[in-house]
Design a binder for these strands. Structure first.
Lengths: 331, 331
DNA sequence: ATGAAAGCGCTAACAA
DNA sequence: TTGTTAGCGCTTTCAT
C-alpha cells in the first residue's frame, strides 16, 4: 500500500497541537521548547512514523548532507579500497553525512560536484580527467595521498610512505638481503612515486644499484608476474623482492618458486600494502599495513572539519603505517 | 573564493530574457520552447556555470534521485563486492540516479530508507537487523539473491546456483574425483544455502555421503583453513574440495599441499566464486564466474524498472553464471 | 516558550 | 510558444 499520504512536519505539529516551528525545534532538539511539549511532539512523530524530508531540509539549509567519494576503478585486489570505503562511510555516517560514489564514468562538467557538500578522492591519479574536474570543483576536496597534478586539494590525508619503505628495506637488509629489487606502479599516483624514490634513495645510500620494474597502476597479476620474471632474469643478483601494487606479492608464487630454485635459496619477499592476501599467503608475507579503513575515516573526519571550519584549507594530516613482519622475510 | 552568490535558474532566465519556466523547460528539453530560445538559454547557463539544485528539484518532484546500496560488511576477499558496487554505480548513473552506501552501522529506524527512492541489498543475510529494517521500508527493494527471511523484496536478481554447482560437481567427477568435499558458508545467505543443498542432492544421487563443513559467512582464512584441515582429517576419502566462500579456495595452499602428500595425488580444488585470487592462484583454480559487475548493473536496472513501472513488483530476473575450468581440476 | 510568515530553487498547472 | 502562480517541506528570522 503505497497510497498513504506522506507524514510531514505539519502533520506532527497538528497532532501535538503546536505550530510547525515548535515541532521542528522539538525534533531537532534546539533547546527552545519545554521538556513537556518536546516529549509530546516526539511521541506524535513516532506514532505517525514521521521522517524528515531531506530535500526540503537541505534546500532550506543550502547544503546536501552528502559527500562524494571517488575511487580509481581498479578491480583486481580491491580489498584496500573496500576497507577504505567502509571507513569513509562509517565516519561520514557519524557526522550525519551520506556518501555517494562517483566513478570515472560519471559525466564530466561541474554537475558532478554540484550535488555534494564535499569530495573525497582516494588515490588521485594524475591524468584521470574525472579527478581533474573534481579537483577544480567549488566544494572542499580531501585526497588520500597528495594529488600529483597542479591543483592542491583543501585537505590531504597521507602517510609517511618514504620512511616506511626505508624501514622495510632496512629490515630486509637485516634479514640478510644484499640486493632487493622493486616492482612498483607508475608515477601517476603520489604513493607509488614516493615508494619508488624512497627505494632509489635507499639504494644509493647503500651503494646499490636500483633494480626496479614499473607496471601500470591497475596491472593484473599476469602483467606483474611478467615484470617480476623479467626483473629477476635481468638482474640475477636480486635476492629479495619488494612489491608495491596492493597484495600483488601474494600472487608471485609461481615466479618466486621458480626463482628460488635457480637463484639463491632464502629469497625474501615483501609487500608495500598489506591485505588478506599477503597475510594468508604461503608463506605469510611481510607487508606495510596501510590501515585503509582508518585512512578512510580520517578523510571523512578531515572533510567534516573543513566543512565546519574546524580545519583550515591546506591542512595535511598524517596517517600511521605499520611494518608487519612475517615469515616471508625470515630466512 | 567561495563568496560568489549562487547561480539559480532565475539568474539564467534573466540573462536570457525569459521566464523561470521557459528556462527550466529549455534546460530539461521538454520540447516546449523554440529551438532559438533554447539555444540562447543554454548559452546563458553555460556562461554562468549554472548547475541545477538537486534538493529543490527533488523536493518539487517528491523523489530523491538516489538509491541506497547495502552490503554485508565483509572485509576479507572483497573483490566480489567491489565489482558489484561498480556495476550498481555504473548502471544507476546511466539512469540518472546516485548511489549512497548504507552499512549496518547506519542507524535503525525508517529514517534510513527515507532518503532514497529505492534500495539494493547485496546478499541479504537472514538475521541482519539493518537488512530486516530495510526490507520493511516503504520504497522498492531489490535484492541480489533471495532474502532468506519472511518479507519478499519487490525485485530479485539471482543466479541458478544449484544448477551451476551440479555442473561443477559433474565436472569434478569427469576429472576423476570420487568423493568431493565442500566448505560452505552458513545458511544465513540464500546463495550458501543453495550451494549446500545442491551439493547434498548431488551426493545423494551419486550414492555418496555428503562431506561438508560450514563456516561463518565472513570467515577469515584462518577459520577456513582450520575447517578444511578438519574436514580432510575426518573424511580421508575426500579427493576433491569445493570451496564456497569467495576466493577462499586460493588461500588453502598450505592445507592442500599437506593434503596432497598424505592423501592421494591429483587432489582437485574448485571454488564457487571466481575472483582474481582464484584466477591467479598456483595452480589456477576452477571456479564459477558469478559476474558480479553485471549482477550489480542488473540490480540497478531492475530497480529502475520497478520505479518507472516497467517491471511488476515480484519480478525475478536470472543472472548467468559460468563455469571456468582451470588447472586445479585437471589432473 | 511559542507562533506567523517568508522563502530556499525548482517544476507542474493553469493562462494567455 | 511563453509567462504567472502556487506550492513541495522545511528552517529561519522576527514577533509575541
Amino acid at each position: 500500500m503505497r497510497t498513504e499520504q506522506p507524514v510531514t512536519i505539519v502533520t506532527v505539529a497538528r497532532h501535538a497541537g503546536v505550530s510547525k516551528t515548535t515541532a521542528s525545534d522539538a525534533l531537532r532538539g534546539s533547546g527552545r521548547v519545554s521538556e513537556q511539549t518536546r516529549r509530546r511532539i516526539e511521541d506524535a512523530a513516532r506514532k505517525l512514523g514521521y521522517a524528515p524530508n531531506n530535500s526540503a531540509r537541505h534546500l532550506r539549509q543550502a547544503r546536501t548532507g552528502t559527500i562524494g567519494l571517488h575511487l580509481p576503478e581498479v578491480l583486481p585486489r580491491s580489498d584496500y579500497y573496500m576497507s577504505f570505503v567502509f571507513g569513509v562511510v562509517q565516519a561520514a555516517t557519524g557526522h550525519d553525512y551520506d556518501v555517494t560514489l562517483m566513478t570515472s564514468r560519471h559525466g564530466r562538467g561541474s554537475t558532478l560536484a554540484s550535488k555534494v557538500d564535499g569530495l573525497i578522492i582516494g588515490d588521485p591519479l594524475a591524468g584521470d580527467p574525472t579527478v581533474e574536474t573534481l579537483m577544480t570543483s567549488n566544494v572542499p576536496v580531501v585526497t588520500c595521498e597528495r594529488y600529483p597534478g597542479d591543483k592542491t586539494p583543501d585537505g590531504v590525508v597521507r602517510s609517511e610512505h618514504r620512511g616506511a619503505v626505508r624501514e622495510l628495506l632496512d629490515h630486509l637488509r637485516t634479514a640478510g638481503a644484499r640486493q632487493p629489487g622493486l616492482i612498483v606502479a607508475g608515477d601517476e599516483s603520489d604513493w607509488a612515486g614516493s615508494v619508488h624514490s624512497a627505494y632509489r634513495e635507499w639504494c644509493a645510500e647503500h651503494g646499490l644499484e636500483a633494480a626496479s620494474s614499473t607496471v601500470p597502476f591497475d596491472s593484473t597479476t599476469d602483467v606483474i608476474r611478467t615484470a617480476a620474471t623479467n626483473l629477476l632474469r635481468g638482474e640475477p643478483a636480486i635476492d629479495a623482492l619488494v612489491c608495491a601494487p596492493a597484495g600483488a606479492a601474494a600472487e608471485l608464487g609461481p615466479v618466486l618458486r621458480g626463482a628460488a630454485s635457480t637463484l639463491r635459496p632464502g629469497f625474501l619477499v615483501a609487500s608495500c600494502v598489506d591485505t588478506p592476501a599477503t597475510k594468508y599467503a604461503d608463506p605469510p608475507i611481510t607487508a606495510l599495513d596501510l590501515a585503509p579503513q582508518t585512512a578512510g575515516a580520517s578523510c571523512a573526519d578531515l572533510l567534516f572539519d573543513l566543512l565546519t571550519g574546524a580545519a583550515e584549507p591546506g591542512t595535511e594530516r598524517l596517517h600511521p603505517v605499520r611494518l608487519t613482519i612475517r615469515a616471508s622475510t625470515q630466512p
